[in-house]
């Protein structure tokens, strides 16, 4: 199978690989996927007190398209507000990376990872800011 050059670029030079301290109050962690399905993504966001995503890190177990999707979204979420970040749709990711139909689930997982990270951050700050009504994405937290 031939890969799109953007997928190859993200695979060979992944952006923002790593971990943030998941117990930090300013960090939201999303862990989505399952080992049995061949894809697990961990996406972490560092959020400033005024609600801007300042930094993002990822680790992914999965095919090249899954690695590229998660690497890409770490770039896209930086500088966005939480509300802006959860507006990122899998279709944008799939289109940017020219994913074939069998790889669309990788972009879905990346979208889920953003929502899970935002939901985790918001759960840590319920009642603190105006974010009490944060939606709760279906997710699994590695810490639990």
């Amino acid at each position: 199978m031939a890969y799109n050059e953007r997928v190859v670029d993200h695979y060979e030079n992944p952006r923002n690989v790593g971990s943030l301290d998941k117990s930090d109050e300013g960090v939201g962690t999303g862990l989505v996927g399952a080992p049995a399905c061949g894809d697990v993504m961990k996406l972490q966001i560092q959020v400033s007190p005024d609600g801007i995503i300042e930094d993002a890190k990822f680790k992914t177990f999965g095919c090249g398209s899954a690695i590229a999707s998660s690497s890409l979204v770490t770039e896209w979420v930086k500088g966005k507000t939480l509300d802006e970040a959860i507006e990122i749709k899998n279709t944008h990711i799939a289109e940017h990376l020219a994913l074939p139909p069998v790889k669309i689930h990788c972009s879905v997982l990346a979208e889920d990872a953003i929502k899970a990270a935002v939901a985790d951050y918001r759960a840590k700050h319920v009642g603190v800011s105006g974010d009490a009504n944060a939606e709760h994405a279906e997710t699994v937290d590695a810490a639990e």
């Binding site: 992944p14 690989v17 971990s19 862990l31 989505v32 996927g33 399952a34 080992p35 049995a36 399905c37 697990v40 993504m41 961990k42 680790k59 992914t60 177990f61 690695i67 689930h105 879905v108 997982l109 279906e138 997710t139 699994v140 590695a142």
Partner: peptide
């Protein structure tokens, strides 16, 4: 780059985690 490797190094059993289905 693998979150599963990271968990294994931290001593977390990946089988103990309730993974989402998809």
């Amino acid at each position: 780059m693998s979150p599963l490797w990271e968990m294994a190094q931290e001593g977390i059993d990946i089988k103990s985690i309730e993974w989402s289905d998809h």
